[in-house]
Every structure is written in C-alpha cells, then in structure tokens.
Amino acid sequence: SSPAPVPTPNVVRVVKNANTLGIAIEGGANTRQPLPRIVTIQKGGSAHNCGQLKVGQIILEVNGISLRGREHKDAAKIIAEAFKTKEKDHIDFLVVDPG
C-alpha cells in the first residue's frame, strides 16, 4: 500500500477586514502541542471572513517568522503584533493540515 501522503504546508493570506483576527490557538514549545494549532475560528473575525483557515490547522510561520521552538506566549504575541501593525493590511500564515 502506498505511504500516507505528507500534508504540504500552504500560505493563507488573511486580510484585516474586521476588528479582530478571531482565532484561538493552543500549543507552543515544551507542551504536548509543540506548534500552535487553531482550536477556534470566531464568526465575524478576519480569519473567518478569509474562509481558508480551518480549525485543526497548525501554524508554522507568520509573515515569514517561524514559530518553531517558540513558547505559547511568544507565538501568540507574534500573531497579535502581526494583526496590530499598520504596515500591512494582511497577515500571511504558513499552515499545514494535521498529519
């Protein structure tokens, strides 16, 4: 039987078209979930409006910044700052479906 296909990461662009990003994340270095995973997507948030982010996806990078090896608080801060900054009107998430 053929080996299970390895899920390939893909970039999802979330346009900041709402007051909140509207995702809840779980995970970070030194926890059972080593990379942040999306556990909730709130209706009306930018992530929900984008329509391409899904619950269960694992976030590898934010605007090219790797989240590998980062503690939960550090990863959450990077995402929050990416949403807050006025330099860009979007956030690029490199995500992968759970393998």
């Binding site: 509207g22 779980e26 059972r32 939960h72």
Partner: peptide
Amino acid sequence: REKRLTLPPSEITLL
C-alpha cells in the same frame, strides 16, 4: 511518545 505524554498541556489564547 512517552515524552509527549509527560509534557504539560498548553494554554489557549484568543486573538
């Protein structure tokens, strides 16, 4: 696998 089980669960942050 054992190592993962001994690691603490993570907190959840709403963004």
